[in-house]
Each structure stands twice: as structure tokens, then as C-alpha cells.
């Protein structure tokens, strides 16, 4: 199986240290378009789409494999193996932060550090743990998604990326926005929002950066602090950026915090 094609791998940058960017639920690799250029001189940039998202090979989708975040972690490991990556900086948005955790437990030598943007080990509240949602919210989300996919309205349809600063890229990065297959998107939502990986946090050995947005309903502050308390060797930065996608809403702050952290880490 050609992993390059399966995961629509894009390799950019002039550096040698690998930096893998992993998109979250509902996105694909072009989410990183305002972030990766800031690292292209020092790093070897690896962008990809999970199987089922973006321009990945949908025929490689396996309902059993992707019914578990470990299946997604295997995508990351497959890519590291195919590209022979070692000591990579793993940058994960949202659910990908936890996918990175799982991958790092299985193949520690592939990774150097984990950068987590809006991470959450569990979205649904559980006793004293405040994840931010109730199970019924997630059930409703799945229905709402269905309502968007079943009909004519499709804001997820393929679009040509606007990228005025880098016209040469607009061609390559012509993407379908999200998983266009409703069944896959629904399963990804289910796997993401019903996941519980709290027990894996204290197993992590790699240093990690938690980028916590202000006012993020998907991963509220309490969740960020929970991660900080349970991840050894972790740093948390509370961002000025609001919402769940600081890499889109405030790329500058995201880049600056990542750079500060990585400089500190490697000195």
C-alpha cells in the first residue's frame, strides 16, 4: 500500500528535524497553511490527511480500524515508518493531540515532543471530571451532522483554497474541505467525542506543550489544566486566541508560542 497516496502526504521545508502536522476532526491538512511556513527553514514539514479525510484514499477506510483512536494513531506511525522519521515534533490539533499521545506510547523513538492545540482526553463529563459536554449533546451533534449531509446543503463541498500570498500553493492545496463521506465523518465525530484517554496521560514520557485557548467550548480551560496536571513534563500556555482553532483564527500567536517552546526545549 502506498502510504504517500493513502494519506495524501505533503513534504515541505528545508530543515532536517521532522515536524508532523496532524489535523483534527472536521478538517484536513490545509488547516495548517498559516502555520507551517513559519517553520519551513528549520524543519522538514510533513502534512497529511487521515484516511477518510481530505484527499486521502477513501477506499483504504476501514470501519473497524477507525472505530478507535488507535487506528488513527496507526496512520501516524505508518507515515513515520514510510518516511523513516525519528525524533519528530508532533503538532496535533484537537483530537489529534491524543492521537499523538497514543502514537508516542507505541513508538517513542519516532517523536521528540508533542505540541497539542486545544487537546482534550475526554469530552463528556464524568463525575468530578468536567469535559464540557453531556452524552446527549454528542448524540445531538451526530443528528445535526446527519441533517447537514443528507440534503442539498453542503458547506463541506470541495473548494479552491484562497492563498493570495503563495499563489504557487493554491494549486497543490486544492482540497475538499472535510471528509466528504457522511458515514466516515459521522464515525470520526463519534470516535472523537466519545473517546476517553485519561488513563493514557500519565504514561507519556515526551515533553509536551498544551496550547489552551481562551473560551474554547470544545476543550475548556478545566480540561487544559487537567492535562497539565496529568502529563509529566508538560507546559501549558493560555492563549489570547478564542475558540477552538487558534491556528486559523490567530496563527501569529500560535506560531510564536510554538517557537518559544521549541527554542526553550532544544537549548
Amino acid at each position: 500500500m502506498d502510504i504517500y497516496q493513502r494519506n495524501n502526504i505533503t513534504i515541505l521545508g528545508k530543515g532536517t528535524i521532522p515536524m508532523i502536522f496532524a489535523h483534527g476532526f472536521g478538517c484536513a491538512q490545509h488547516m495548517w497553511r498559516d502555520i507551517w511556513p513559519a517553520f519551513e527553514n528549520e524543519y522538514k514539514i510533513v502534512l497529511f490527511d487521515y484516511v477518510g479525510s481530505g484527499k486521502s484514499d477513501l477506499s483504504a477506510y476501514n470501519e473497524e480500524r477507525y472505530a478507535n483512536l488507535n487506528g488513527y494513531a496507526e496512520d501516524v506511525l505508518d507515515i513515520c515508518k514510510a518516511l523513516k522519521l525519528k525524533d519528530a515534533v508532533f503538532v496535533g490539533h484537537s483530537v489529534s493531540s491524543i492521537i499523538g499521545v497514543l502514537a508516542s506510547l507505541k513508538e517513542p523513538s519516532f517523536f521528540q515532543s508533542l505540541v497539542m492545540i486545544g487537546p482534550s482526553p475526554r469530552y463528556v463529563n464524568d463525575l468530578a471530571y468536567h469535559g464540557g459536554f453531556e452524552k446527549k449533546d454528542i448524540d445531538e451533534l451526530l443528528v445535526t451532522m446527519e441533517q447537514n449531509y443528507e440534503g442539498w446543503a453542503n458547506f463541506l463541498a470541495p473548494v479552491i483554497m484562497k492563498n493570495p500570498e503563495r499563489p504557487q500553493l493554491s494549486q497543490e492545496l486544492t482540497e475538499s474541505f472535510c471528509a466528504t463521506d457522511p458515514t466516515i465523518a459521522r464515525q470520526f465525530a463519534e470516535v472523537t467525542f466519545l473517546s476517553d484517554n485519561r488513563k493514557d496521560l500519565n504514561k507519556v514520557t515526551h515533553p509536551s506543550l498544551i496550547l489552551q485557548c481562551s473560551d474554547d467550548i470544545i476543550a475548556p480551560l478545566a480540561v487544559g489544566l487537567y492535562l497539565k496536571a496529568n502529563l509529566k513534563n508538560s507546559t501549558i500556555k493560555i492563549m489570547k486566541a478564542t475558540g477552538h482553532c487558534p491556528h486559523i483564527s490567530d496563527p501569529q500567536e500560535t506560531i510564536q508560542l510554538m517557537k518559544e517552546y521549541l527554542t526553550q526545549l532544544n537549548h
Binding site: 448524540d139 484562497k162 477552538h244
Partner: peptide
């Protein structure tokens, strides 16, 4: 509603931001 907030944050907002 809460579920629509999730959809808004994860799918609508990024799409809106990129495509205006």
C-alpha cells in the same frame, strides 16, 4: 445549542474562515 456549537467550532468556523 451545545451540539451546534461543536459543529460551528469544528466545521463551520474553519470553513468560513478559509472561504469567507
Amino acid at each position: 445549542t451545545v451540539s451546534s456549537r461543536i459543529l460551528y467550532q469544528t466545521q463551520v468556523y474553519p470553513s468560513f474562515k478559509l472561504n469567507e
